[in-house]
Structures are given as structure tokens and as C-alpha cells.
Design a binder for these strands. Sequence first.
DNA 1: TAACTTTGTGAGCATATAGTAATATAGATA
DNA 2: TATCTATATTACTATATGCTCACAAAGTTA
Lengths: 108, 108
Amino acid sequence: MKTHEKKLYQFKAAVIAAAGHPIRLAIIDFLKDGEQCVCDIAKHVEAQRSNVSRHLGVLLKAGIVEYRKEGLKVMYCLKTPCVLDLANCVVNVLRKQARETSTLLKRL
Amino acid sequence: MKTHEKKLYQFKAAVIAAAGHPIRLAIIDFLKDGEQCVCDIAKHVEAQRSNVSRHLGVLLKAGIVEYRKEGLKVMYCLKTPCVLDLANCVVNVLRKQARETSTLLKRL
DNA sequence: TAACTTTGTGAGCATATAGTAATATAGATA
DNA sequence: TATCTATATTACTATATGCTCACAAAGTTA
């Protein structure tokens, strides 16, 4: 593996890792229809505002979301809507898991 | 958010998190052309075998890879090749980042 | 059987991550 | 100005993750 290949895997992994948390995944999903303030995001994902603020920081650092200030509020939105595809890719893995489990259970 | 929605985000996040590590991403990429033994995987990603073994355990638990034993060797392969799409989804995020950085640097 | 190869795992350490409570900051409003 | 609201940040704790070394297990070969 060449050095630049390794670097590229690091960059990709950083973005994927940022998406790999249930709350952050819920946030990404919530933002699919447009921008939302931290306040409403926190309500929707049912987590503390300070915690949501942290998770938004992670998504921001990874380049997944961006924000603009509007008065008191800070509005966040998806920077590249294609991150929504991430969750879709994973569904196939979950489906395969489910099929296996159900096959296994039938043999009980 | 309903309880089953939360559960689903947890399941999805578990799979995404499993993919969100540079070495594991390199392993997934290396397996795209077919099964490989731990030994060769370790050589390719340039990491210690015990470490690679651990990473393979993570991918296995997440349902991303599966294995079969062949003599001394254990051959791993992708269980659902669609995980390869994960890395592709992320490329757009990285491209956006790159464009921004270069725009910024032009103003120096 | 003894030595070797391949893989997995336990122990231990360093670091990263997630969450909470309290505080700081910035803007809006009375 | 004083107060309220929305958000970010600091400090802290608990837990998870990544890595390495050493060793164990299983199969191969001499």
C-alpha cells in the first residue's frame, strides 16, 4: 500500500466514523428535508442539547453538515446530501443478517 | 422518534462504525476481488497479524465479512459486496472538502 | 512425536469517545 | 439595563477502542 492510499483510507474512515453513531445517523436523517436548528434537532433525536451540540461538531468537522446563524438560532443542514446513501448501503447488510437469523431460528 | 426507529439507527450505526477505520476500510477494499487469508491481508494492509485478526473480528461481528477454514488458513470474503459502496458515498464529501480548501487557499 | 505455521485471544496500556452538569457567549426582548 | 433564549464549551467521569506482546489452539510437515 502506498502512502497516499493510506492517507485516503484515513480520510474516508474519518467521514464514515463520523456517521457511525446512532444519534448522528438520526441527525443526518432528520436533516434530509432541509435545515433545522439545534433546538429542534435535540427535541427530535431526544438527547440533551449540549450532547447534540457535540455531535453536530463531529459532523461539522467531518464535512457532513454546515451551518448558518439566524438570530439566536444556528441552522444546520447537510453539506452533501449523498451521505444519506450511507445508511441505504447498510440496509443490505442488515437484511442479510436478518435472513440468516431467521433461517437459523427455523431449525430450533 | 419511536423505539424501533432508535433500534434501527443503532443497528445501522454499528455497521457503519465497523467500516469506519482506515485498516478495516483497506481490508474491505482488498477483499473486493475475492477471498484472502489473514496472512495476506496483514501483508497488504501492513499491520500486525494479531491486530488484523482483531479488525476482522469487528467486521465479522458487524456482518460485513464471513470466513471459511482451509487447512491452516482462514479465508475471509465480503458477505455483502454492497459495503464497497460505502467508500464511494464518502468520496463526494471529500471532494467537496477539497474544493473548499482550494478555494480558500486561492485567497491567500 | 516434534517442530513449524497460521490464526485467535487474554492482559495491559494509552488514547478516544460519549455523556452530563455547569458555565460562558451572543443575540433578542421587556 | 436586566433578563431570557439558544448554543457552544469547559471540566469531569465512565466506557470503548486500538494496539502490542505473549501465549494457546489447530492443522501441517519432517
